[in-house]
Structures are given as structure tokens and as C-alpha cells.
Design a binder for these strands. Structure first.
Lengths: 332, 332
DNA sequence: TTGTATGCGTTATCAA
DNA sequence: TTGATAACGCATACAA
């Protein structure tokens, strides 16, 4: 493969001149420049990024290691990151850990060795030691959509407790009293926080406590199962509204209810969480708590860039606010 | 940042020995090895991938430039790629062109300069000159989910004409005669092929031709609009079944019909295309034509690796077969 | 305006 | 088993 040397030989100039054409074009006479450029085309010359990077020390690349590339939520976060990256002329590489710790570690290692400018990561466990190790080994890191409690890392997340509160307050406003929470396992921080918020909202209003319909995962399938369990309750004890820990659960629940002939929201009102695209496109458009996921990505990217080139950077934990989007599944 | 030299000094050995600890550990006495390893930990040593890459010429990285990271279809393809990549101990970087030519070009350039081992790409235009240019500049490329007609590139795609045929044959089997095709614009190769297949299937069966309900894009919103237009038709001329160019259209159509009080499939049967996850999770689970997207990714990754290290590699255009998944939206 | 020389961090070759 | 040295491809400072 042709390098600067070959181009120089082919164009009958020195190696330094070729380099100048590449990096300081204005300092080269138009005639020689043309000669050199022709030679580059002819030989199919491609800059070797590894070599230039070796000289300059840093690359113009950011990376986002995400939990689950198939979840529209994370790809939207990535779009926000990319927006900031692009305006700073950075490229963004996305890596999918797919909820596997070994892959998360492998990608982080690879990226650190690659000396990318900064790493954004939605980790499986925000307290994991290998996260802090990345920063310690010299690459700026920002945790996205999680807030590490004990670590000196930047992070950007959304207030899930508030989100849970917004959801039940909306249901209370609509006149509901018997409210169920569908979600689990509580080992997931997100789920736990949303439930805490829901309980807080009910407490403050003096309303009866939630009935928890525990699920084993936050999937459509589990949402259907939850639906069966709600249908199995005696009519008098059946809740009039359900707040689901995410939209997948809500969609599954909705599907089960509609399939069984119940009306939403008349027989049961539903609130989801995340406001994924398909929430609005469901048979009964879903009320949902929206996270500012675009903003999440933008802010995270800004932080990581600041950490990379501002010597006075100090770590900060940014918390953004969610917002309720009311649709047919609660309004009728 | 500490390099091999610093480690060597710190451990009181030569630079070459450090390198051996890294690459030929068995050739180093346990005692010195320990000394060196301690020094590495102490200094927070991280291999510089750019430098090692500069020596060895190639990296262990594949990249997938995708059309739209928010579309579950492409992330599933990516999962298939990653499966093959992982078993060959490659990392996969995903890049999102987001349907913008300038970004596609920018990413391809960046990746070529980075000397990645191979590039997979679902391009905006499979005939674009810059695709062939990538291969010409020395990086193996495989086109995914598109089949370039005029170019000497490897590709893996799915037979959309057959998919269209499968859809209408299923509807014919279910006794439908007045069938509509919902989709557009026909400038999209995918849309065109599926329509061609649908027409072929009807022709062969001697059934009346499709009514085309043209859309401006393949989105949920356009699906709803198409629904309005179908509802506007006089009852006698209204189709009894609709084949949609993709699942988003089908979901929009479904939403509009159910919202207007029509029954699916009794008043109108619906077939979608892609079998995205939410097709099965819709209020009325959707019959859809499934593409083997996992397989698509796996095969593409195999091809690009073959192109990278098999000197006798010859370009091939692989075409995979779709499959119909029947659900409630046509079965009742 | 153009050419020459040096170094970036690593690996590989060879000699000790 | 270990150490010295050249080379990878490029960019930069400096000399011509």
C-alpha cells in the first residue's frame, strides 16, 4: 500500500512536501500541489491514521458503549451524543455490550488502548471497578443514564424518582385511587427508583398504597403475564390504573387487556415509561414518562469533551428532569 | 502517559524485555516477568494500539456503517455481524450514517484511514462510486441488505421479490381477492421489489391486480394516512386485505383501522414486512414477512473476513430467502 | 517554497 | 534469557 514516501517518489518531490500538501496546503505552490495530488490519486494513497495518531497523541474519536443496541432508547441517546460529536468534528463509534460484563470490559479495554478521545458508557453496574479503572488509565469517561454513587466519575442521568411521581400524580388527577405498579426485578436501579417515586406521590396525596405486580424482567412478554394476573383479580379489588416500569411492559399489558376485550382506559388506564417511538404508535396510544434522551446524550458528550481538554475540569453528576406525555391510554 | 520505555526503566530491565512480557511471556523468566508486571501496574501502563498497529499493519476491528441505528432491523443485523466477529476475536464498531450521504462518506473515509480489517455497510445508494472506492483503496467491503447491480463488490441481501410473492400467496390462500399494496415511494428498491413480487403472485394465480395505495415514506404516520384513504373508499370497492411494504406502515394502518372501529382481520386483513419485534407485540399481532437478519449479518461478516485474509477470495452476491410468519392479523 | 532529519511507542531481529 | 537496534508511516522543526 502506497505511503507518503511512494507519493513523493512518484511526484518527484520530497516526502516533506507531500506532508505539507496534506497538512499545510497553502504553503505549497499550486503547481507542485497538483502534481502531488495527482500522484496520490494515481497510487490510491490513504493516510494512515495510526501513524498520524502516534505523532499527535490523540484521535478524533468518541465511543459509546451501550447496554443494548436493540433498545430504541439507547440509540436515541446515541443520536444525541453524535450531534455534539459531529459539531466538534469527532466521529462516534458505538459498541454494544449487550448486557454482558465480559463484553463491556473487552470493549472498554480496546477503546482505552486505541486512545480514543473519550468514552461514554451505560454500564451494567455503575459501581464496577473497571469503570473507574478506565479513567485512571487516562481516558475520560462519562456514565450515561446511571448515577454511580461512590465513584468520582462524571455522569448524566434522569431523575427516575421524579418520573415515578409524575406518573401517579397524573393518575390521581384523573381520579384514580386503586393504582398498580407493574415492574421488576427491584435489583434494577431504574425500577426501584420509579417505584419509590410512585409511592412518594401516593403518600403525599394520602392515597392508598400501590399494589405491586412484580415482573421478572421489563419485557413485552412479562407485561402480558402481568395482564393475566390483573385480569385474575376479583373485580372489586382490581386496580383502575397501572403504572408500568417501562413501555415494553405497558405494551404487553395493553395487548393482553385489549385481547381479552377490556377497554383502555375505561376499564384500566395505563402509564408507561420511556416514551419509545412505538408507545405513540400503539393501538391505544400510550401515556408515558418521557426522558430527555437526546439531551442526555448531548450533555454527556459535552462533559467527556470538557474532561478531555479542559485541565480545570471537575467531575459532575448531572440529573435531568423527565416529563409526562399524556395520550389516549389515560385520557380516553 | 507511561510507555514500554518507562516500564523498562522502572523495572530495571530493557525495553525489549518488556515487549516480550507483553507478547512472548513464556520466553521471560518468572522473576523478571513479575518485576515487569508490577511496574506496569504501578505506572498504569496501557498498550498503545496505534503504535502496535503501525508495526503490524492491520487492526482487529470490523465496522458496520448502518443506515439508521434507530431501526431495530439494522441493530439485529449488527447482532449477527457481532456474533461472527466475536468468534474471530474481532471488535465491532457501529457507525450511524442516519440516511445522510455526507455522513456515510465521512465514516467510510475515517474507517479506511484507520485501516480497519473490514467494513460492512448498508448504503444509501448501493451504486454510489464512493463504495467501490473504499475497496479500491484497500479495505474489504461488503454491502448488506442491498444488492449493487453494477459493482464488483460482495453483498448479502434478501430476496424481496419472493417476499412480496409470499405475502400475497398467503392472502390468496386465506380467500382474499381484492388486495391492496400499501407502500412507496417506488424509488426505494426494497419497495419496488416487494410490489413486483406481489404482482407476480397475483398474476400467476389469475387474481385481479393490486390496488396501490402510494405512500411518501415507510413510516407509521404514512400508514395511518393510508388507513384513512382505505376507509374513504366505497364499501364495495374496498380491499379485504392489505400488504404493506414494511411493518411501520402496517402498524400505522392497524392503529387507524382499530381506532375507527374496524375489525382486523375480519374487515381488513393485514400483512407487514420485516417482522420487527413490535409486529408480534401489537394489539392485533401482525402477520409479517421475516427476513433472516441475524443470518444476514453473520454471512456478511464471514465474507468480509474472507476477503481480508483469503488471497483467492472472489466476490459473491448472496441472496437469502424470506419467510412468512402468520399471526392474528390475517388468521383471526 | 522545498528538502532533511528526528521522534512518536511498539515489535521483531539479532547478537550477547 | 536478555539487551540493543531498526523499522512501521507520518508530521514537525529546521535548514537550504
Amino acid at each position: 500500500m502506497a505511503g507518503v514516501k511512494d507519493v513523493a517518489a512518484h511526484a518527484g518531490v520530497s516526502l516533506g512536501t507531500v506532508s505539507n500538501v496534506l497538512n499545510q496546503p497553502h504553503r505549497v505552490s499550486p503547481a507542485t500541489r497538483r502534481k502531488v495530488e495527482e500522484a496520490m490519486v494515481e497510487l490510491g494513497f490513504v493516510r494512515n491514521e495510526a501513524a498520524r495518531h502516534l505523532r499527535s497523541g490523540r484521535s478524533r474519536t468518541l465511543a459509546y458503549v451501550m447496554l443494548d443496541a436493540a433498545n430504541p432508547f439507547f440509540t436515541d441517546v446515541a443520536a444525541g451524543i453524535e450531534e455534539t460529536a459531529e459539531s466538534g468534528r469527532f466521529s462516534l463509534y458505538m459498541c454494544n455490550s449487550d448486557n454482558r460484563v465480559d463484553r463491556e470490559v473487552a470493549y472498554l479495554d480496546h477503546l482505552v488502548e486505541q486512545r480514543v478521545q473519550g468514552i461514554l458508557v451505560t454500564p451494567i453496574d455503575p459501581e464496577a471497578a473497571h469503570l473507574a479503572a478506565v479513567a485512571h488509565r487516562g481516558t475520560p469517561v462519562v456514565v450515561v443514564d446511571r448515577t454511580p454513587r461512590e465513584q468520582a466519575l462524571c455522569s448524566v442521568a434522569v431523575d427516575d424518582v421524579l418520573g415515578g411521581r409524575l406518573a401517579v400524580e397524573h393518575l390521581l388527577d384523573r381520579g384514580h385511587e386503586r393504582i398498580a405498579f407493574v415492574g421488576g426485578p427491584e435489583s434494577i436501579g431504574q425500577v426501584r427508583d420509579r417505584l419509590v417515586g410512585a409511592r412518594g406521590g401516593l403518600d403525599d396525596a394520602g392515597a392508598p398504597p400501590v399494589t405491586v405486580i412484580a415482573t421478572e424482567a421489563t419485557t413485552v412478554r412479562e407485561g402480558r403475564t402481568a395482564g393475566e394476573r390483573i385480569l385474575g383479580l376479583p373485580r372489586a379489588k382490581r386496580p383502575t390504573a397501572a403504572f408500568c416500569a417501562n413501555d415494553l411492559l405497558a405494551l404487553g399489558l395493553l395487548q393482553q387487556l385489549v385481547g381479552s376485550g377490556l377497554a383502555v382506559p375505561d376499564d384500566l388506564a395505563i402509564v408507561g415509561y420511556d416514551d419509545i417511538y412505538f408507545a405513540g404508535a400503539a393501538a391505544v396510544p400510550l401515556t408515558s414518562v418521557r426522558q430527555p434522551r437526546h439531551e442526555l446524550g448531548r450533555r454527556a458528550a459535552q462533559l467527556v469533551l470538557d474532561e478531555a481538554d479542559n485541565p480545570e475540569h471537575s467531575h459532575q453528576q448531572v440529573v435531568l428532569l423527565p416529563e409526562l406525555v399524556a395520550r389516549t391510554s389515560t385520557l380516553g
